[in-house]
Simulated scan of single mutants.
Amino acid sequence: MEKIIVPVDFSEHSEHALQTAAKLAKKYQAELLVLHMLEMPEMVLTSTGKKQNEKAGFLLRLTEQKFAKLLDVGFLIGLKVTPIIKHFKMFSEVNDVAKENGADLIVMGTQGASGFKEMFVGSNTERVIRYAEIPVLAVKKKVMDVSFEVVAFACDFSEACIPAYLKAVKLFEKMNSKMYLVYVNLPNDKFKSSVEMEKQVAEFLMKACGNLQPMKNVHYTSDYSVEAGVLSFSNKIGADLIALPTHGKKGLAHFFEGSVGEDVANHATLPVMTFKI
């Protein structure tokens, strides 16, 4: 992990993200790219009038002052920090910045008390996740330890999830994390027998990595919803992080045969990391 992007809006949530990213940067000796999307009215961006140019200059100077204050904190001492200001157009630009700079991870803050649903539905973080080609780590409070020793990767073991799974395996191996895979068996028409689940997992692993060795880390749990099953399993194993696949521009994956990923993270207090399919 060499470069980490942290989009900030100078809110408390983005400060949590910056602190988390700083801990990761210190742990892996990575560079921090602190990104602010400066939202300017279209008329300011397109107009050539003197007053409009003065207004644009004022907004830019104000942002630079806020940036300087944000970055003047003790937990950034000793780190290589590169501030980046981009004029707001689309949140796909965060992915563009990531590609231009060869970033490995995006760290973002999100709403706190009401859960992660705001993050995934209509928020800036959700928009970034839709376009991001690299993993996105979303946090809604201060993360005290970024070792992420125990990770719960929620997946339905469909072929579509193989790219996300392989990305997760590669990253968590580098982080020396123990990754457990979990399948939530649901009642009624979504129910699968033990034989059916094991067969699906075996086919998935053979296609993904050519062997069945990871089966020892696969767990099955039964619950009334995917959200309840994943959160219960994460608590059971003492997970530090929940990982999820995402369909990119289509939003979070409708994995587990119809359940939406944001339902899984709706009440999560743990950090959530997404991997694009």
Rank of each mutant, 00 (worst) to 15 (best):
D263V: 10
V8D: 02
I237M: 08
Y183M: 11
A113H: 11
V182A: 07
E39R: 10
A138W: 00
V6D: 07
E12T: 11
V260T: 13
T269C: 06
E54C: 05
A21D: 04
P7V: 04
L181Y: 12
K69D: 12
V34F: 01
I134L: 13
A103P: 00
F191A: 15
A160Y: 09
N95F: 08
M206F: 10
E15M: 13
V195G: 09
E2W: 12
Q200H: 09
K141E: 13
D104F: 03
V34A: 08
A25W: 03
V81D: 06
G122W: 00
N101M: 06
K51P: 07
S222V: 04
C161M: 12
I85D: 11
M43Q: 09
V195W: 12
M273Q: 05
T82P: 00
F153N: 06
M175Y: 04
H36M: 02
V260A: 13
P7W: 06
A138I: 07
I277L: 09
K276N: 13
V195F: 14
K69T: 08
V143T: 11
V128H: 01
L76W: 03
T46W: 09
F10P: 01
A253C: 08
F256A: 13
K66D: 07
P83M: 00
K23A: 12
D223W: 10
V94N: 09
S234D: 04
F148M: 05
E173H: 12
A160V: 14
Y28F: 14
Y183F: 15
N185S: 11
A253K: 13
H247T: 10
I77V: 12
E257P: 02
H254G: 10
D9R: 00
